[in-house]
Each structure stands twice: as structure tokens, then as C-alpha cells.
Nucleic acid binder design. Structure first.
Lengths: 223, 223
DNA sequence: AGTTGTTTGAAACATACGTTCAAAACAAGA
DNA sequence: TCTTGTTTTGAACGTATGTTTCAAACAACT
């Protein structure tokens, strides 16, 4: 008794809406979690925004903690699927082809493609990642790394193959730096703006921000 | 009625302890806030760790929100003071001297000097900054930027002077990237480790991590 | 020793939260 | 239409939280 619309072009899902209770909850939850944080968002706020009953969260997801995991799963399933397709291709390439720009592309393209599924999905996803990363204490990070960590390991191996002159330590940390720039910048691209002055004429498109970032990160990688 | 010990060498405060209730609360609060987050840390947990009465938080700081601000103030007063001394010097220098390594040093040295005041102060401070940054919604970021933003503006101007070939937009974003790497890396240097494999032999000292980061960031700045 | 202003202490308050429950509403098949 | 399994609903429960209150303890000064 809910409405589902799926727009498919040349076999690819371009946009889909799903008015089921579960989807309405996930949509409201991911927005509010990204906006305010996990602890700061109550189930009542979520169900109120989703226009569903409070009890339906526990009925469909079991608990608030499981809802948070479900929000991440929806993003990470899409993302890691696309990423591992790219990794499969790159793992066939010779080391000479594994330059930073190429490897970053394998990360960024799947990321940007998320915006095809939901509005502002990339910003929301990055904010959620930033928050999950801050949750040193919680079980969320453990859950994410246990479930999706193997993809990042493959990504690391490609960098090691492409940059044999760097030690494993250097690779590890530089990947760390790059992730930091990416998540930090995309999570709060509207944030640091108010720190600086107003006389900047910045392009706000996520795509442009990332495009601007690639040469910066690639240069650092070659340092 | 409380004990204060200040160790001064050649006119500089090397280490100081202060057993007043306010200090005990601040010490416990900054540790727990960094560890678990603001919302996830209750006043009862704080006062229990600090071994003071629950009501003393509201007596000395007014509210939990004000306590959070006070925690930041204690860090930022130390840090921005040291930073602005360095900025004063650098603002006298010719543009040719304002290279990325030098400017980053003006940021990093005051940062590292925080570890002289309290144990693990740098890591704690960076985690707090990461959390404050994630708090898009809250008033915390507004408070910090209104009170200490002018120092960052001066820092931005120095970069513009040192790198006249870059547009203001590029400067702005690249500073953004650098901050992301810095905060992200230092806030969770023990975090991404478990994602990757165990066969890395990483140095864990904050100082070393930062030292390793400078060439990476400087190369990006020159890209 | 007595007075005054400050700090601490134990208890209580009101509120917001995640979760549970049982009844009602609904959908689908016999 | 009756039955069965699923979903939605409104209300309630227990608990944890930030804050307030007011009396007791304390420190400094005369």
C-alpha cells in the first residue's frame, strides 16, 4: 500500500522514490543525523519529519542503534559496489598506470554517483562519515570497518603498487591525510565559509570542490 | 583551600596544576568530551570523574553549554595567543619568505606547545575541534568563530601574500584541505589504524605524525 | 568569636528519551 | 465473508538527563 517509482534509462537506475514506511524513516533519519548528529536527533523528531508513527522505528529496525546502521548500509552498499567494480579494473592494470589522479578517480566517481539516487546524497554521506569517525567510543565505526573495511584495504594495496618508492607507513598516513581533506571539506563545505571573509566568489557545487581538490592531493602524494 | 603548583623555567610556564573545583571539572570535561562527545557525556559522568558535586557545574559555569565553551576557551586562549605572536612576526616578512612550510610552522608550533600544559592536550584539542566542526547545527561553532575567527583571517592573508599566483578561492579551499588533514589525522590517529592491516610499524607520536604531514601539505599548496 | 560572602552538599524537580504493549487497521487468500 | 499474518496506532513505562533549591560547611576579615 505504498507507492514506488523507479526511473530506468538504458538499464541504469536514475532516480527512484519509495514511499514505504521504512524508506520514509531512512530518508528522514539520514537527513537529521547528518544535520544534528546521532545523539542529538530523537526518534520523535525523525518520525515526526517522516510523518510516521513513533513505534514504527522499533518495529521495522529494532532499535535506534540499528536504524543508524541501516542508514549507513544504504549508502555503503551503493558506494562499495561501485567502488569494487573500479578496483577490479584497476587491479588488472600495470603499476605505471596507478597514479594518484587515477586512483582518486576510482574513489570519487562512485562517490559522486550517489547524487543520482537522492538529493544532496554526497554531502549527507560525508557528514555521516565525519560523525561516524568522531564516534571513537561507539560501535558504529567497528560495524562499518568490519563490514566494508576490506574494500579500503584493496584501495591501499593499489596505492602501494603505484607508489613503490614510498614506505607502507607513508602510504598509510597519506591516505589518511587525503581522507581527512575529502571528508572534512565535503562534510562542511558551507561551514568554514563564515570563518573567512565574504568577498570570495566560491563555486559551491560538490563536483567542483572535489575537482579542485584532486591536483592538491595528487601533488601531496608525489611529494 | 586548594593547591596550585606552577613550574616556571626562564620565565615560561612549563607545567601547572590547579586543584580548584573549576579546574577539576574542566580537566574531566575536556577528556570526556573528546572521548565520547558532548551529548554523550553527562554532567554526572563529569562530576563523578572530577570527584566534585554535581551541582558545582551549574554553580561555576552556569550550564552545560557554557561548560563546553569554557573547555574551548581554555585551549583557544593559549593557542591563539601563541599563534598571534607568530603572525606578528610573519606579517613583517617579505612575501618571498612566506612559504607553506614556514606558515604551517606558525600553526603547528603553537599547537604542539599545548602539550606542555596538559598531558595529551594536542590530541584532545584536535578531537574537540573535530567534534565542534561536526556540530553544524549548534551554537558552538558560531561561538568559536566569533571569538577567535580573526586570527584565522590573518593566517589566510599571509597565504594570499605568499602565494600571489593563486586565486583567493584556491587559497581558501586549500587551507580547508589542510585543516581537514590536520584535524582528521590528529583527532583519530589511533582510529584508521584498525581499518588497515596490522603489519605497519607506525610511529605514534603526535610530533612525528605532524612532521610527516608538512611536506605532503606543502606540496599540495604549490600544485 | 562573630559576621559576611562564597562554595559545597544531598535531594528533588521537570522533562525528554528509547522502548514496549495491546488493540486496531489493513491486506491477501480461502 | 471469514481467517490469517502484517503493519500502524496511541498510550504508557522506566530511566537518565540538566537544572534548581536550600541548608550546611567553609574562608576571610574585624
Amino acid at each position: 500500500m505504498f507507492q514506488t517509482t523507479v526511473l530506468v534509462v538504458y538499464g541504469q537506475i536514475i532516480m527512484s522514490t519509495n514511499d514505504s514506511t521504512q524508506t520514509k524513516i531512512l530518508d528522514a533519519a539520514e537527513f537529521l543525523f547528518a544535520e544534528r548528529g546521532f545523539a542529538e536527533t530523537s526518534l520523535r523528531t525523525i518520525t515526526s519529519r517522516a510523518k510516521v508513527n513513533l513505534a514504527s522505528v522499533n518495529y521495522h529496525f529494532g532499535s535506534k542503534k540499528s536504524l543508524i546502521q541501516a542508514v549507513f548500509d544504504r549508502f555503503l552498499q551503493d558506494f562499495t559496489l561501485q567502488l569494487s567494480i573500479r578496483l577490479n579494473e584497476l587491479e588488472q592494470e600495470p603499476a605505471s598506470e596507478l597514479k594518484a589522479e587515477v586512483l582518486l578517480g576510482a574513489l570519487i566517481d562512485p562517490l559522486l554517483s550517489l547524487n543520482k539516487t537522492r538529493k544532496n546524497a554526497v554531502s549527507i554521506f560525508m557528514r555521516l562519515l565525519g560523525r561516524a569517525y568522531a564516534e571513537t567510543q561507539g560501535h558504529l565505526r567497528r560495524y562499518v570497518t568490519e563490514r566494508y573495511g576490506h574494500v579500503l584495504v584493496r584501495f591501499t594495496h593499489l596505492f602501494q603498487k603505484g607508489y613503490p618508492g614510498l614506505t607502507n607507513d607513508q602510504i598509510f598516513w597519506r591516505l589518511h591525510y587525503m581522507l581527512g581533506s575529502l571528508i572534512f571539506t565535503l562534510a562542511g563545505s558551507d561551514a568554514l565559509r563564515q570563518i573567512s571573509e565574504a568577498d570570495f566568489n566560491r563555486s559551491l557545487e560538490v563536483k567542483d570542490v572535489i575537482q579542485e581538490m584532486v591536483p592538491f592531493l595528487a601533488a601531496g602524494m608525489k611529494a
